[in-house]
C-alpha cells in the first residue's frame, strides 16, 4: 500500500500535497552557493562558461563585477558575443536592484559583468543570454546567498 493510496481513501492526500511539492522542488533545483559559481554549461550546450566573482565568495549589499569566460565545448574562445543578463528572486517577486551590463573583457574569451548587486539573502535566479554569430544560447544560474 503506498502512502498516496492510503491517504487518498481517507481524504487526507490534500494535506500532504504542499509537503510533496516542496520536497520535489528542492530536489529538482541545483543552486550553487556564494563561493561556487565557477563553472557552468549553457542550456543547449553551445558554450561553457567560467565565472570569477569579485569579491569571492559573493556577498550581499555590495556592487560587484564578475569576469565571465565563454568558450565552445572544444575549448575555443567565443569572441564578440552579445551577452545580456536578467535576474531576480522569484520567491520575493522582484528583479535585480541594479541594471547590470556585460561588455568585452581583457581577452577574446572574457567578458565583464558589471553592476551586479544582491540585496537579500536567499535564492537568486540569473539568466545570461549569449549570442555569438548564428548561435544563441542561455545560461541559467541559481545562486543561494
Amino acid at each position: 500500500m503506498t502512502l498516496a493510496f492510503y491517504f487518498r481513501d481517507r481524504g487526507l492526500l490534500l494535506l500532504w500535497l504542499p509537503v510533496y511539492f516542496t520536497l520535489s522542488h528542492a530536489a529538482l533545483g541545483q543552486p550553487v552557493g556564494a563561493g561556487d559559481i565557477a563553472f557552468q554549461s549553457t542550456v543547449a550546450g553551445h558554450y561553457e562558461v567560467r565565472f570569477d566573482s569579485q569579491p569571492k565568495p559573493i556577498v550581499i549589499n555590495q556592487i560587484q563585477s564578475w569576469v565571465m569566460s565563454v568558450r565552445t565545448g572544444d575549448g575555443l574562445c567565443v569572441k564578440g558575443a552579445e551577452i545580456t543578463v536578467v535576474g531576480g528572486m522569484p520567491e520575493h517577486n522582484h528583479g535585480f536592484p541594479t541594471a547590470p551590463l556585460v561588455r568585452p573583457g581583457a581577452n577574446d574569451c572574457e567578458y565583464l559583468v558589471e553592476g551586479l548587486r544582491f540585496h537579500m539573502s536567499g535564492r537568486w535566479e540569473m539568466s545570461f543570454n549569449i549570442k555569438a554569430g548564428a548561435k544563441t544560447d542561455t545560461l541559467m544560474v541559481s545562486l543561494d546567498l
Binding site: 556592487i63 563585477s65 541594479t98 547590470p100 551590463l101 558589471e114 553592476g115 548587486r117
Partner: peptide, 12 residues
Amino acid sequence: CAELRFMRSGVD
C-alpha cells in the same frame, strides 16, 4: 561611479 552607472528604474 558604479552605483550611478548601473542604477535602474522601473514601475516597482
